[in-house]
Design a protein around this nucleic acid. Structure first.
Lengths: 103, 103, 103, 103
DNA sequence: TAAGCATTGTCACCCC
DNA sequence: GGGGTGACAATGCTTA
């Protein structure tokens, strides 16, 4: 296939910014590793897209039942904010307790 | 809890555009249904976020192995474009055939 | 007019994030500048809308001549993708070269 | 060039939905016309993109002067709504006048 | 920290 | 008129 395109950029980690091997290719081991990373990402993104489609379906179904998706989105956003806020308050409380030496 | 906010915007499907019950609430059944939809979406979005995090981790790990995430993204994008383009060309062909009345 | 609404949100650049003058107005110079920016944007968006309308007209005319707008759009998209892809491949090559330290 | 791709769909206008020429191509004149339409659209879209870039620049410049682009967008949106509303009211007024036989 | 980019969400148009 | 699709705008992340 088009896997020939993955002849790509590898640098030994922990070196200064400029690289080794001025104009040549990676060795086979690195190439294999890179290919593996690429494919892992592609697989995960596929799953992610699947979930996005699922979400769309739920909205469609809800809409068919007479609910307004736009409002639903707003509600969900609000609830997410609430959660975040509560978590922040909890974290703050923990900080206080730690600072005051309370178990 | 904050469920009080969801007393909004439900219309029996197949009614005129404006809403019923000017200032009152939905019946319990509708409320339950809405709550169910909302929670399904929230669950799915949580999973989606999880996958996004996984992807980030993969990039971070690859970077730690000396690969350049920026290049990886470009490679993945190119590969995705290949797929998409092929699909669109197929679609175009189908459109042509349909427009020309070919079975 | 409704210009009273624009008495908001101006910060001297290079200051800390929060705003000056808690409940008062901008000075006249800033107000004039803001008005000028707003009007420039509005003018540009008007022109942009004009072009969008022109494009619609072209499609309509082509349709009247017996061409299928849907297919035309697909063709144009494909051609745009060709360009974009070529550019991205060039960019990828540049990235490789930069990463490998090649002048 | 890649102009070979524009061998596309043409139907004599004013016919019923299904088409002539089951599997063949357009004549040269039609091909030329189609090409012309395609290029007109492409040119217009280019200009449109240019304007979009101009708008971005204005926002950037305004931001550099200490204005908040987000707020600016809101202001512009509000003003656009005002205009639209006023125009609707004018149209309504015209309708009234026409209905009442007032010049 | 700011700029650019990628993604995501919203909106409008077109077809059915 | 309603649903689906595609363009546009906006937000958040990534990098310099």
């Amino acid at each position: 296939m088009s896997d020939g395109n993955v002849t790509a950029l590898h640098t030994d980690p922990g070196q200064e910014t400029q690289q080794e091997r001025p104009a040549s290719a990676m060795d086979n081991v690195s190439t294999q590793r890179l290919k593996s990373y690429i494919e892992r990402v592609e697989r995960l993104e596929e799953e992610k897209k699947g979930l996005a489609d699922d979400i769309k379906e739920v909205y469609a179904e809800a809409k068919a039942m007479g609910f307004d998706p736009k409002v639903m989105r707003q509600v969900i956003k609000l609830r997410a904010q609430d959660n975040e806020k509560r978590q922040e308050q909890d974290a703050l409380l923990e900080t206080y307790k730690a600072a005051l030496g309370i178990a």
